[in-house]
Each structure stands twice: as C-alpha cells, then as structure tokens.
Design a protein around this nucleic acid. Structure first.
Ligand SMILES: [Mn+2]
Ligand SMILES: [Mn+2]
Ligand SMILES: [Mn+2]
Ligand SMILES: [Mn+2]
Lengths: 217, 217
DNA sequence: AAATATTTTTAGTCTAGCCTAAAAATAAAT
DNA sequence: ATTTATTTTTAGGCTAGACTAAAAATATTT
C-alpha cells in the first residue's frame, strides 16, 4: 500500500459515510484537490486490488478489505492526534497536518502500543470516534447545534469542520468539548443563535451552529 | 525534500563520518541497496540543490546545509527510537525499522516537543548521540571492546552494528548499555575474549568485540 | 424527445526515482 | 608504460502518480 493509495481509501471512506450511493469521481477529486482523471486512474488500480468496487460512471464503494484498511488509517490518524494533544501539548487546531503524515506509519505494534500508552481513548481531540484494532468504531450520539430548539441545553461533543480557523474561533468564544451550551434564542431571519456559555452570552451564526456537534441534556 | 532525498542525505552523512575523502557512488549504492547509476542521478540532483558538492568520479561531500538536514533526520530517528523504547516498551532491537519511517515526519514543533517530552535525551537506545535542534552532536568517548587489553574493566556504552541479530545476542548474554565488562583473558589464536559480566564468565568472538563500544574505567 | 450541460473516462504527456546496458574515466596489475 | 580491472557516468527504458485535452456517457433543461 502506497501513501497515495492510503489517502484515496481514507477519502473514499469519509465520503461514503455521507451518502449511501457510490462515491463519485468528482467528489474524490475535490477533497483530494486533484483532477477527476487522476481519480479514475487510481480508482481503477484500487479496484484491481479489490479494495473498492468500481463500475464505470457509477462511482466506487469500499470492499470489506478496503474499508478495514481505511479504518486502520483513520485509527492511526486519531490516535496520533490524541498523542499530540495529550502528551505533547499541541492545541486541537495544530494536530491535523502532522497526523496526516503520521497516519501512514506502518507498524501494527506501534499503533497498538500507542493506543495502550494513551489509555485506549475512544475519541480524538475533535470528538471523532477512534476505531479499535478490529476496526470497530463507536457510533457517537450527536446532533448539530443548529438543530437544537431555543430553550434547550446541550453539551458540546464534537466539530464537523476541524479547520484551524474554526477551531480557533471556538477557542476565542471559550467553547470546548464538554462545554455546556444553552440555546437562549434563535433568530428567524438568519437562524443565528444566542447561546449561554459559562454564564456569558454569545451569538453565533447558523454556519457556526451547523459545524458544532452537541448532545442534548 | 522528498523521502528519497532525505534517505540519500542521511546515508551520505553516515558514510562521511567514516572517511575524510568524498563519499563514493558505490558506497552509497551498497548501503541503499540500489544501483550506482541511480546514485549518480540523485547525487546530481542534490548538487543542484546545493546540499552536496559533487565532482564527477570524485564522490560527494555534504555542504553545511546538506549536513544540517542530515543531522535533523538523524535527530528525529534517534529521538523516535528513545520514544519507542522509553515510552512504548519496545526493545532496542525492534525500533530501527519504525524509526526509519518516523524520521521523515516533517514538523519542527513535533520534533522539539518530543525532545522535551523525552527529557532531552543525549543518546539513543544504541548509545548513539542525539543532535540538538541546532545540529550540535556530542562526541561520545568510546573504544571498541576488541581494543581493550586483558585485565582491564570497561562499561558498555554503545553498539556499532545495531542489527537485531546482534542486539538479541547481547540480550542473551545479558550485556546491556551500562553493563560493566571485565576482560579476563584474550586468546592469541582467534582474538576471542573471555569476559566477566555480572560475575558470570562469557566468551565472545573478535567479531562480537569489534561491534561493542566501551569506555574504560 | 431532443438539445444542452455536466460528469466521467480515455489518450497522451510529464516528472521522480528506479533500472539495465554500454561507454568513459580511474585505479591496479603486469 | 601498457594492459586489465574496477568504478562511475551516460543513454535509454520503465512505473507510479500526477496533469491536459478530447471523447464518451449520463443528467438536466427545454
Ligand atoms: Mn485530523
Ligand atoms: Mn481529528
Ligand atoms: Mn536506528
Ligand atoms: Mn539507534
């Protein structure tokens, strides 16, 4: 498995979570910031290796083997993110690019020892679940903050967008995983929300609320 | 800097320690398990980038910039080896291959935070010195065990060969870094040595003794 | 249903990093 | 000082993984 093949598998895995149909060539190209023709090439190679099922013009789906490989990459990515934050004091907006590299290190022993060293974490610093060594991944109970009606309280449990601009915005608003958010009111006009966080009121746009995962309490 | 360029620089660095002259094409090809023609190719690219000085048929030497880059790769390699042994309970014969991968991770912050997390170690699990972030590397005082005369005592401080067969042999003989070795006698015929280690006597061949670094006490 | 737009695939190129085989330079032996 | 052996370089090829441009298939409008 090359570095590049691993990246394709991971992207296909993430895209396949969003839709039940086959993952399209263009969608992959967009995420990878490459060209559809390059994607077609690679997808045909992955099909040769039986990591995906490919039918011309119909997109691709992961095989069981392909999904397992993708999950192992996701596992490594998220474990390394935990390592960086918990052990090396990185902040949650600094870990992604380094984890993109570390996820390709090939050593089962390393992955499993790291998992143990970190205390078998179940979630990464962004609230995403960490697959175990068998590829089992917990389904985390969560909704988007934008779907919560006024008057309800919820705990922040994850982010949909984990770009550093978004994460730094949350830091500035003092919103972290585990924070309790009360939806004070919701504007009909732009769907912006007024929240109470730590006894302070903040207003966030619908776009912000649509990228924060919460759990009602 | 590609993965491959980094490997070349590192190999050139290691070979340049052994001889004062330019590092030869064949020597590089041997270590890299590749062909001299491939080496010539790459060496010309590195010369373009001013990482080495190359004169046809005369071998290469690192420039200051090239040496610094090589040292940063060596630094990462050895820090990761310490991490694997100290934090993840790898044994000293299991770390090299994984460190070969980890040494290519590009993040100064990661390297320096890791260094700090490990308590700024000065040596790796094989007794090799770890360059600091400026590229300074301590010269460790050491001799080969094969050069120690009978009757003297010495502390084991490093290995020249760090193949897992050799390291496992040392484990079996209960020789570790820090062990005190007394040279009880030396055979004239084959230069084999009888040592006292932990009040037990062991006989080791000249080949073994030629791969163990010690410091007289 | 036909026309138009979009998506996807194919065909052909390019570069990095490897290779083999042949030529050129250097080193060693006679 | 030649001849012979070794080392190194050049020339030409191959594959992975990207690209552009053109063709083919599918989706959307009219
Ligand atoms: Mn990430
Ligand atoms: Mn994450
Ligand atoms: Mn090593
Ligand atoms: Mn080492």
């Amino acid at each position: 498995m090359t570095y590049s093949e691993e990246n394709y598998l991971k992207v296909i895995y993430h895209l396949s979570l969003a839709s039940t149909k086959g993952v399209t060539t263009n969608a992959i190209a967009n995420v990878m910031e490459s060209k559809p023709s390059s994607v077609t090439d690679m997808v045909q190679k992955l099909a040769e290796k039986e990591l995906v099922i490919y039918r011309k013009y119909q997109g691709v789906e992961l095989t069981d083997q392909g999904r397992f490989m993708a999950l192992m990459i996701v596992r490594k990515h998220r474990l390394w993110e935990v390592f960086l934050v918990d052990k090396l004091d990185f902040s949650w907006d600094e870990v992604h690019d380094v984890a993109e590299q570390l996820e390709h290190i090939k050593s089962e022993k390393l992955t499993n020892k790291l998992d143990e060293f970190l205390g078998f974490p179940t979630e990464d610093p962004h609230g995403d679940p960490i697959p175990d060594k068998e590829g089992k991944i917990a389904k985390i109970e969560k909704q988007l903050l934008s779907e919560i009606p006024a008057g309800r309280r919820a705990i922040c449990v994850g982010v949909k967008d984990s770009s550093s601009t978004f994460l730094q915005y949350l830091d500035k608003q003092q919103i972290a995983l585990g924070s309790t958010l009360e939806v004070v009111s919701k504007e009909d006009f732009d769907l912006s929300l007024t929240l109470r966080v730590d006894n302070k009121e903040v207003t966030v746009s619908n776009k912000i609320a649509g990228n924060l995962f919460v759990k009602l309490i």
